[in-house]
Structures are given as C-alpha cells and as structure tokens.
Deep mutational scan, measured.
Amino acid sequence: GIQEIVAMSPELDTYSITKRVKEVLTDNNLGQRLFGESILGLTQGSVSDLLSRPKPWHKLSLKGREPFVRMQLWLNDPHNVEKLRDMKK
C-alpha cells in the first residue's frame, strides 16, 4: 500500500510538488476540495493548509509525507485530470 511507497520514497521537493498541483488544478478548473477528498483523503482545511504551507520533507513524519507522495503519484499519472473530472460528476 501507500505506506510502503512512502517508506521507500526518495526525498521529495514538497514546495515544487504543491506548486505544480495548484497549477494543474487551476489550469483545469478543478477545486482543492475535490482533489483533497478524492486523491489525498483529506478535508478541505487540511488540503489548503498543505498546499499553501508545505513543510520541508526532512521535517515530516512518514504520515506527514504521505500526502506529498500521493500528490507526486497523481502528477505522474497522465490521466490524472480526466479521473478527477469524472469524480466531480
């Protein structure tokens, strides 16, 4: 599951990941809330907090790293936007 992926993950640049996620969401007119609930399993508040103030990787616990790994996996998925759009319906 995701825990193994997080444990094996190389250090991620949390700042550039969140910046990229925000760009993709904005460009495709997708909400942070939808993204947070569907992709990260987080509430709106947690998501906007994460996206606006990402902590550096080395300061995060494994649990804290999980959303960033999920974001990275989502960014790597060529169908990420379509999938999210489908969830919106």
Rank of each mutant, 00 (worst) to 15 (best):
G1C: 12
G1I: 14
G1P: 07
G1A: 06
I2S: 10
I2F: 13
I2A: 05
Q3N: 14
Q3S: 15
Q3C: 08
Q3L: 10
E4C: 04
E4G: 11
E4N: 12
E4P: 05
I5K: 14
I5N: 10
I5V: 11
I5R: 11
I5S: 12
I5G: 09
V6T: 10
V6H: 08
A7V: 08
A7L: 08
M8F: 09
M8G: 14
M8C: 14
M8V: 13
S9C: 11
S9N: 10
P10W: 09
P10V: 07
P10M: 06
E11T: 06
E11D: 14
E11R: 06
E11A: 12
E11M: 11
L12W: 02
L12Q: 04
D13F: 01
D13H: 01
T14Y: 00
T14N: 01
T14F: 03
Y15C: 14
Y15V: 13
Y15I: 14
S16C: 14
S16V: 12
S16K: 14
S16M: 14
I17W: 10
I17M: 03
T18V: 13
T18Q: 04
T18C: 09
T18F: 01
T18R: 00
K19L: 09
K19Y: 05
K19E: 12
K19W: 03
R20M: 08
R20N: 08
V21E: 03
V21M: 03
K22I: 12
K22C: 09
E23Y: 07
E23F: 05
E23A: 10
V24C: 08
V24K: 07
V24R: 06
V24M: 10
L25E: 04
L25I: 04
L25M: 02
L25G: 01
L25N: 00
L25C: 00
L25T: 01
T26K: 13
T26P: 00
D27T: 15
N28C: 02
N28P: 04
N29D: 10
N29V: 03
N29C: 14
L30I: 11
L30P: 02
L30N: 01
L30S: 01
G31L: 02
G31H: 09
G31Q: 11
G31C: 13
Q32G: 05
Q32M: 14
Q32K: 10
Q32Y: 14
Q32R: 08
Q32C: 11
R33L: 10
R33T: 12
R33G: 14
L34I: 09
L34S: 07
L34D: 15
L34E: 13
L34W: 08
F35Q: 00
F35H: 00
F35G: 02
G36H: 05
G36K: 04
E37R: 07
E37F: 02
E37I: 11
E37A: 08
E37S: 08
E37K: 04
S38A: 11
S38R: 14
I39W: 01
I39R: 01
I39F: 03
L40K: 00
L40R: 01
L40M: 06
G41L: 04
G41I: 00
G41A: 04
G41E: 07
G41K: 11
G41F: 07
G41Y: 02
L42A: 09
L42H: 07
L42Y: 06
L42D: 09
L42R: 08
T43G: 12
T43I: 03
T43Q: 12
T43N: 14
T43H: 09
T43M: 06
Q44Y: 12
Q44A: 15
Q44L: 11
G45D: 15
G45T: 13
G45K: 13
G45P: 14
G45N: 15
S46M: 13
S46P: 10
S46Q: 15
S46D: 15
V47D: 05
V47A: 09
V47Y: 04
V47H: 03
V47C: 10
S48V: 10
S48C: 07
S48W: 13
D49H: 10
D49S: 11
D49G: 06
L50T: 06
L50P: 00
L50K: 06
L51T: 01
L51V: 03
S52W: 04
S52E: 13
S52G: 09
S52Q: 08
S52I: 05
S52P: 11
R53P: 04
R53V: 08
P54C: 04
P54Y: 00
P54T: 03
K55H: 07
K55L: 11
P56C: 05
P56W: 05
P56M: 05
P56K: 14
P56E: 15
W57V: 01
W57M: 00
W57F: 04
H58T: 06
H58N: 10
H58L: 05
K59C: 08
K59S: 13
K59L: 15
K59A: 14
L60Q: 03
L60M: 03
L60K: 08
S61F: 00
S61W: 03
S61T: 11
L62P: 15
L62G: 08
L62Y: 06
K63P: 06
K63D: 09
K63S: 11
K63M: 10
K63L: 07
G64D: 12
G64V: 05
R65L: 00
R65G: 02
R65H: 04
E66G: 02
E66F: 01
P67H: 13
P67K: 15
P67T: 09
F68S: 00
F68W: 07
F68M: 03
F68D: 03
V69N: 03
V69Y: 11
V69K: 05
V69E: 08
V69G: 01
R70D: 05
R70V: 09
R70K: 15
M71T: 01
M71K: 03
M71Y: 00
M71R: 01
M71S: 02
M71G: 01
M71H: 01
Q72V: 04
L73Y: 09
L73G: 08
L73A: 13
L73P: 03
L73S: 09
W74I: 01
W74P: 01
W74N: 01
W74C: 00
W74Q: 01
W74R: 02
L75W: 01
L75E: 02
L75R: 02
L75N: 02
N76A: 11
N76K: 15
N76M: 13
N76R: 10
D77P: 01
D77M: 04
P78G: 05
P78Y: 06
P78S: 08
P78N: 05
H79A: 14
H79I: 05
H79G: 13
H79V: 06
N80G: 13
N80P: 03
N80L: 06
N80D: 00
N80S: 13
N80T: 04
V81G: 02
E82W: 06
E82T: 12
E82V: 11
E82C: 08
E82D: 12
E82G: 10
E82A: 13
K83P: 01
K83Q: 06
K83W: 04
K83E: 09
L84Q: 04
L84C: 06
L84V: 07
L84K: 02
L84A: 03
L84I: 08
L84F: 05
L84S: 02
L84Y: 04
L84E: 01
R85P: 01
R85N: 15
R85C: 10
D86H: 12
D86S: 13
D86M: 08
D86E: 13
D86N: 13
D86L: 12
D86Q: 08
D86A: 14
M87F: 10
M87W: 11
M87E: 14
M87Q: 15
K88G: 09
K88T: 09
K88P: 07
K88S: 09
K89D: 13
K89T: 10
K89V: 10
K89A: 10
K89F: 10
